[in-house]
Amino acid sequence: MNHRLLCVAAWATLVAAITQGGESGPQQVIADAARRVVKLYGSGGFRGLEGYQTGLLIAPNGRILTVASTVLDAGEVDCVLDDGRRYAARLVGIDPQRELALLEITAEDLPAFTLDPAGPLAATGTRVIALSNMFGVAVGDERVTAQRGVIAAVVPLQARRGAAEAPFQGEVYVLDCTTNNPGSPGGALIDSGGRLVGMLGKELRSTTAGIWLNYAIPAAELCRGCDTILGGVAAGPAQPVEPFDLRLLGAVLVPDLLDRTPPFVESIDPGSPAERAGLRADDLLIAVGPLSVTTRAAVEQAVGRLAVGDPLTFVVIRGGGLVELDLGPRPPAAVRQPAAGGRP
């Protein structure tokens, strides 16, 4: 496409953006969408566990979608509508894999979001507005918090090991703004026309960097979650994924018995990738990739953080000298298989 054509396209977008702004500005879009967002209050309120979150009205008869969390442990949850009306919400069901929960209040003719099961994923770069009960600053008939941002990436939540632990591994919208705060989970992510794009997810924090992830679960995934709950599909517990382990390559380290067990290699399985790469018993690992390691725990952490396909290299001390070893790309992590038993 030549530049002139691009410009014409850009111009058309500009005009559209302005026209849209004139007809239904962000103020009106926010006001309309906020009527479909509820504030939820349940159990919690201590030790960093908030007792409040956000929910989305997804049907005029009072169906509310939110995240499955400890807030709902109370059994009965207080639900406050945009206009300040207060209801007791009942838990209908939970989708543990997506960590979604469906609640119900006894009400009718409520404004609600439309969930489109066939809705395509929003593109990276889409302008969005997040609406949530962030920090619990809005109470009663006060309108929830509105924040503007851009979808910065559409990526699987199967983040690197050690970065964030979440049962849901599908694609999520990563946002460029700080939308995921205490109380935000269950909040609405809408586009400039007020359509529901996704739902703000549970708080996720990197255990190593301490950084919180700002993300939302796509609307189509929310539909599947609702179907799972309403269809009575017994969604089993999320499949735990084992962190990557050197034993998958045939290397066994000395048992982790001390506070700071030095990472010596105990044994190497014959014919294993580790043996082929030249790793030997009694090697002392001092670096995994660019990271220096001094303990067994540090090795596990460094290895566990590698994504599938990342290069795996070691530096070891052997016989007083340094040896560099290349074990090739990290293979896929194995999903824990149920222990083989006698039952069919």
Binding site: H3, R4, L6, C7, A10, T13, L14, A17, I18, Q20, G21, G22, G25, P26, Q27, R127, R148, S192
Partner: peptide, 23 residues
């Protein structure tokens, strides 16, 4: 005031696209 965010989009587009003098 009403078009504020809309013209933020404008700025992004203007800044992000290669444009000649005529454009």
């Amino acid at each position: 005031r009403r078009i504020g965010p809309a013209w933020a989009a404008v700025a992004a587009l203007v800044g992000g696209l290669p444009m000649g003098g005529q454009a």
